[in-house]
Amino acid sequence: MEDREIVKLYFARSESAISATAEKYGALCYAVARNILGCDEDARECVNDAYLALWNQIPPQVPASLRAFAAGIVRKISLDRLDYNTASCRCANTAEILDEISEILPDESAEIPQGDTLTEILNRFLASEKKRDRVVFVRRYWFCDSVREVAARTGMSESGVRSLLFRIRKRLSAYLKKEGYFE
């Protein structure tokens, strides 16, 4: 079923909207949650929370891309959930990603401005990147794919992906400073 038809179901308040979303994007949503949380049980719960969030948000919202919208909600819920996870359930992949992000930030105490500023800067930064680099960056830090998964998806070697991610992080760090994001 096409996205617009699914969105129509949400507007019609038909419960089929949720099952149609689950059918089409359930696997993607689960993968995003699983990547972040590293725990099947939590991932399932987050995905179901996301379906309820979709139900409550559409309408009034009309997502331009249901896939990105649904995955974005799952991502947010999963990140929120991260704090509550036990250490045993903590995903090594996410810990690795957080470590990598620390390379972008000047230091742990740096003030992160609230609001849309970072999003706007990231959008400009991504626009300036080559498509391949952009995809690798988004797969790693938005979808939270493991390096192995990114390599498999892009046809690169794992070391190639690590190296490329390192260079992108350097560029992003410089870009954020240039844009005056950090005080």
Binding site: L28, P63, A64, S65, R67, A68, F69, A71, G72, R75, K76, L79, I112, D116, L118, T119, L122, N123, L126, K131, R134, V135, V138, R139, Y141, W142, F143
Partner: peptide, 14 residues
């Protein structure tokens, strides 16, 4: 805060 990046980049990567 990265969650809100433009959907076209998410679509592109997806």
């Amino acid at each position: 805060q990265m969650s809100a990046i433009d959907e076209k980049y998410i679509e592109e990567a997806a």
